[in-house]
Design a protein around this nucleic acid. Sequence first.
RNA 1: GGCCGGGUGGCAGAGUGGCUAUGCAGAGGACUGCAAAUCCUUGUACGUCGGUUCGAUUCCGGCCUCGGCCUCCA
Length: 459
Amino acid sequence: MPLILYNTLTRRKEPFVPLDPDRVGMYVCGPTVYDRAHIGNARPVIVFDVLYRLLKRLYPNVVYVRNITDVDDKINARAKESGEPISAITARTAQAFHEDIGALNALPPDVEPRATAHIGQMIVMIQALLERGHAYQAEGHVLFSVPSMSDYGMLSRRTQDELIAGARVEVAPYKQHPADFVLWKPSSQDLPGWDSPWGRGRPGWHIECSAMSKEYLGITFDIHGGGQDLVFPHHENEIAQSVCAHGQPFARYWLHNGYLMVEGEKMSKSLGNFFTVRDLLDQAPGEAIRLCMLSAHYHQPFDWTAEGLKQARAAVDRLYLALRSVAHIQPQGRDEVPIEVLAALKDDLNTPLAVSHLHELATQLNKAATDGEKARWKGALLAGADVLGLLQQDVEAWFRWTPAGGTALSDGRIDDLVQQRIAARKSKNFAEADRIRKELADNGVLLEDGPHGTSWRRG
RNA sequence: GGCCGGGUGGCAGAGUGGCUAUGCAGAGGACUGCAAAUCCUUGUACGUCGGUUCGAUUCCGGCCUCGGCCUCCA
């Protein structure tokens, strides 16, 4: 069964056929580093991480590029507010981004280019657009001429007339057409700027992705991904710039993850339902957050709820409990992704179905009677979880996780109480044993008496 | 106004022209000093009205309804 992907360009599911199976290229729009990542930012990171893991299983060489936007007017505004130097803001925020998404088990991309390190390539591309008659200069700006591209709007399926009608912001007077967008804009001395043929200035938002994808993946490449909100204008404009500058096709498969809502409402700062990844990592382990995200199909809108996170955590608990019961068994077939998990993911990244297969594997593991069966099912469960970026940590570490700033009992204190209870049980002092269990339960610690002794976990 | 995606059992959420999704929650049972975990059994579905069909939750059309986007935004 081939890999099938829903391509926004054609609005249908298509078999994925790479340009060069020996070098599959994927570009995903990364963060603008002016503030900590919120859960909306986390969704594409997790979704495309799963795709990356899947592609690596299917092809020998995958190049995953995810940029960091470190030049942007939002960053400039932040610097002006706080007085913190721009370079400090971007460095600090980029580092925080890496920490946050690392906790969500997102693999680092192969290349993580920064916009400010590719200004030269952007200038070259803008020059090409000017030479080919797809851009013009006006009042220190360089603008892309939307009417110069006959099939502009192919991705978002908009016509140029609609763009005029839909323009709800004031159109800058130097624009020849309301939909024209900025490639380069002048910078005053207090703003970041680079010398260019058009004076000291800075790039527009869209050009960086066009320049950096070409730098690392070539003019035409396989997959371009991002959030659905980027379809227009960002990705539409990337296509316009790249196609018009090079005269050749740009990305072949466009993938977009759906929007993220919170408790049924649009996530926004004014509604007070705006969570950062960091906030959530203080409340729940990263793998619970990750599984929660993967419990709905990437293309659907996702409603983030406290209840959903709770259920996701319970689901991960269940998988780790299955593993805990076979901690002493060496897994077998550790690298063979179970066929049903693979099939689910190859069908346009059907992660909810893949997760359900993980649960079925856990059930089989729980039911396994012989060590041979246990070894086989354990290997299958772990291998299936790997492609989803789940079950990546030590089983006991998972059960010992504790929220930030909590007043949880220490591991050592819990171990002591467990030992006391074991002694009480040995002497048939069940009243004392139950008292200790109750004391631990009151502190959020669950005990499980098994054939191999007593284990505990934080709930 | 334009574009797009939805409406599935208590909840979340896949999927399918006729055959158990899965998890959580519920009920009964086994196991356990008691529990927990686990296993077994089990109840509750496919917005609405038509059409196509031997048969539709699943295809087609109308309707109702929810949500998002339309040059800040993953």
